[in-house]
Amino acid sequence: MSLDAWSAVLDRLEADIALAVSGGFPPSWEPPRDAGPLPVALEARARQVLDAQADAMDLLARLKNDAGSQLGALAAVPPGPGSSRPLLLDVRG
């Protein structure tokens, strides 16, 4: 695979990371079958993409955990007596 083709692969990975971190859903990705070895000239960039992926996974895991905690707190609020209206939850005390 050429330098340009590998650059395009890294571009796609970077775009997918940005999309995921901003709340979007990246399309499914399959690695190129004919990739061959990564050109030495792109090694530093590939490491940056790998680090960005790890950071994004950590961020998304924290967001998922926070959302789960919030959903758990909401589930703990008892429903009002016979009311279908939302209840106010004072979280400041």
Results as ranks from 00 to 15, higher is better:
residue 47 R to P: 02
residue 55 D to N: 14
residue 49 V to C: 00
residue 34 D to I: 05
residue 78 P to A: 14
residue 37 P to I: 00
residue 36 G to S: 08
residue 48 Q to S: 13
residue 71 L to H: 12
residue 58 D to V: 07
residue 38 L to M: 15
residue 45 R to Q: 13
residue 78 P to K: 11
residue 44 A to I: 08
residue 84 S to V: 06
residue 52 A to P: 00
residue 65 N to L: 10
residue 20 A to V: 00
residue 30 E to R: 13
residue 36 G to L: 06
residue 81 P to A: 10
residue 86 P to H: 07
residue 85 R to T: 07
residue 43 E to D: 12
residue 57 M to I: 09
residue 27 P to W: 00
residue 74 L to D: 13
residue 81 P to T: 07
residue 23 G to M: 03
residue 78 P to Q: 13
residue 93 G to W: 00
residue 89 L to P: 01
residue 44 A to P: 04
residue 36 G to M: 05
residue 43 E to L: 11
residue 56 A to F: 01
residue 61 A to P: 00
residue 39 P to K: 06
residue 22 S to R: 15
residue 68 G to C: 01
residue 82 G to V: 02
residue 58 D to E: 14
residue 23 G to F: 03
residue 80 G to R: 12
residue 39 P to R: 06
residue 80 G to N: 05
residue 25 F to T: 14
residue 41 A to Y: 02
residue 65 N to E: 13
residue 20 A to S: 13
residue 92 R to V: 04
residue 48 Q to W: 05
residue 82 G to N: 14
residue 27 P to A: 14
residue 48 Q to V: 07
residue 35 A to M: 09
residue 63 L to V: 00
residue 46 A to I: 02
residue 46 A to Y: 10
residue 54 A to G: 06
residue 43 E to V: 09
residue 47 R to W: 03
residue 22 S to L: 05
residue 81 P to F: 09
residue 90 D to G: 00
residue 78 P to T: 10
residue 71 L to T: 08
residue 65 N to Q: 11
residue 44 A to Q: 13
residue 88 L to E: 12
residue 51 D to M: 04
residue 93 G to P: 01
residue 92 R to E: 14
residue 32 P to Y: 07
residue 71 L to Y: 08
residue 33 R to K: 13
residue 26 P to L: 03
residue 82 G to H: 10
residue 84 S to C: 10
residue 85 R to H: 11
residue 71 L to R: 15
residue 67 A to D: 14
residue 83 S to Y: 01
residue 64 K to S: 13
residue 60 L to Q: 06
residue 48 Q to N: 15
residue 46 A to P: 06
residue 87 L to V: 13
residue 67 A to R: 12
residue 55 D to K: 15
residue 64 K to D: 13
residue 28 S to M: 06
residue 83 S to R: 10
residue 60 L to R: 06
residue 35 A to G: 09
residue 48 Q to R: 15
residue 68 G to L: 02
residue 59 L to H: 11
residue 39 P to C: 01
residue 58 D to M: 08
residue 57 M to C: 01
residue 33 R to W: 01
residue 47 R to E: 12
residue 90 D to Y: 10
residue 76 A to L: 10
residue 49 V to R: 03
residue 31 P to R: 10
residue 92 R to F: 09
